[in-house]
Design a protein around this nucleic acid. Structure first.
Lengths: 233, 233
DNA sequence: ACAAAAGTGTTACACGTACACCCATGG
DNA sequence: CCATGGGTGTACGTGTAACACTTTTGT
């Protein structure tokens, strides 16, 4: 039994994949393999399969591109301009993924000609993908102001200066490092390690790890990580 | 030109329509007219038409049911369990609408056998609609903790006690009325009227109106309306 | 010894919270 | 006159923001 007389549409999943290299946010893009717009840069996406949940589709696509599984990913928004894809009407359900850029397995991606772009130097993208990326940036700022989500972008061990850079870069501002470290340490989410990271400074900065249990439990709690979230959107 | 070899899916828009009657939150439901599950209660929904934006579809559906246009409505989430509709696979993009229950034009809705249910006394719904409603409640609590969105549920003129009830009911708690009124008045969003509402008390409570410009401008600003937003989700 | 980045403590202010009484009116 | 709900002010504690110097070590 079917619903008769109704139009069926293509449904695509597009992934906005963010990384952070210690300097700036990066976006993973691919060079589209099929016409139209072949060779133009694009978000990684694909069509939803007949018996596939959208979350599954997003994970399938992410794995195909990066080789990674079990990364943080969340449904963001569904785009539906009738003419957004000139070939045929397609609805795009978008997912934002945050990955530790160091875990990225480049070799696998070669088949898609994937490349990390600094977030401020993204090229022209196909269809409405520029708009999607722009919305994803806002989404991330919003989310990160309330939840400790940005840890997903860092390696297992990270330093406070790295974390600070992560926040400063996202909000394009600078935070007082004393207040910042007091605030993040007061959450109890960080566990100080004995080793130091000695690459990027002479003195060296202590590594921290996430307190995984507290992190999971407190994830949905409001954290007010960002001081005055007036300028977020 | 078309994408070949891909499956096209039905895409439905379902509207979660919230109202507030001064006592409690209500949900507008219809009795499904078509098989299967005919006569069972359901969210108001419909299939997306070939050249229709999802936002348009949501507005079309809302208008058909309530007669209302230009109400506050926002896309919430897209549900995609492959078997969520037993007839045929259908993706549901959901929209939350907040309406002033007094503006609701009942006569138009008669054709759908629509009815307002108190939010805590909702019946069994078809498909995954109970889950959708549950998510919509969380969504509303989250959103309202940060943005002055609940005004959309009140008439043009409303009193502080009404507003207080609106918040208390949503968070199932009680707020100190002195602190509450100081907080909302300090936003500058409210304009005191000279008349009083004298139905619900002997003394009468002053009416307030929204400062529309400030409301629009400040809508995306964080407002921290709710004191300790720990128990929101 | 000096340059460069890490780490730490105090004070002032704003905001949030707790709390109790008077006011206006209709019955 | 009294019961009901509306309206207001203050004192205290917590958290946020501003601010500068010392430490470490590689060169």
């Amino acid at each position: 039994m079917k619903y008769s007389g109704q139009t069926r549409l293509l449904v695509a999943v597009d992934c906005i994949i963010f990384g952070f290299d210690g300097e700036c946010y990066k976006l993973l893009l691919i060079q589209r393999g099929m016409a139209p717009e072949k060779k133009k840069w694009s978000l990684m996406g694909g069509f939803v399969q007949p018996d596939e949940h959208l979350d599954e589709a997003a994970n399938r696509i992410l794995k195909k591109l990066t080789g990674l599984e079990q990364v943080y990913m969340e449904q963001m928004y569904t785009f539906s301009q009738p003419d957004r894809d000139p070939v045929e009407r397609t609805i795009a359900v978008t997912y934002v993924a945050l990955i530790d850029i160091n875990k990225y397995q480049q070799q696998i991606s070669e088949e898609f000609h994937a490349k990390w772009f600094p977030l401020n130097e993204t090229p022209q993208l196909i269809f409405d993908h520029n708009e999607i990326v722009s919305k994803a940036k806002s989404w991330l700022r919003y989310k990160a102001a309330l939840h400790p989500i940005l840890f997903e972008l860092l390696p297992n061990k990270f330093t406070l200066p790295q974390l600070l850079a992560l926040y400063e870069d996202l909000y394009e501002t600078s935070f007082d490092k004393r207040n910042f470290s007091r605030k993040v340490l007061s959450t109890g989410l960080l566990i100080k390690q004995k080793e130091k990271e000695k690459e990027s400074s002479k003195k060296g900065a202590f590594y921290y790890k996430l307190h995984k249990k507290k992190y999971k439990d407190g994830f949905q709690t409001f954290l007010n990580f960002v001081a005055k979230p007036e300028n977020i959107l």
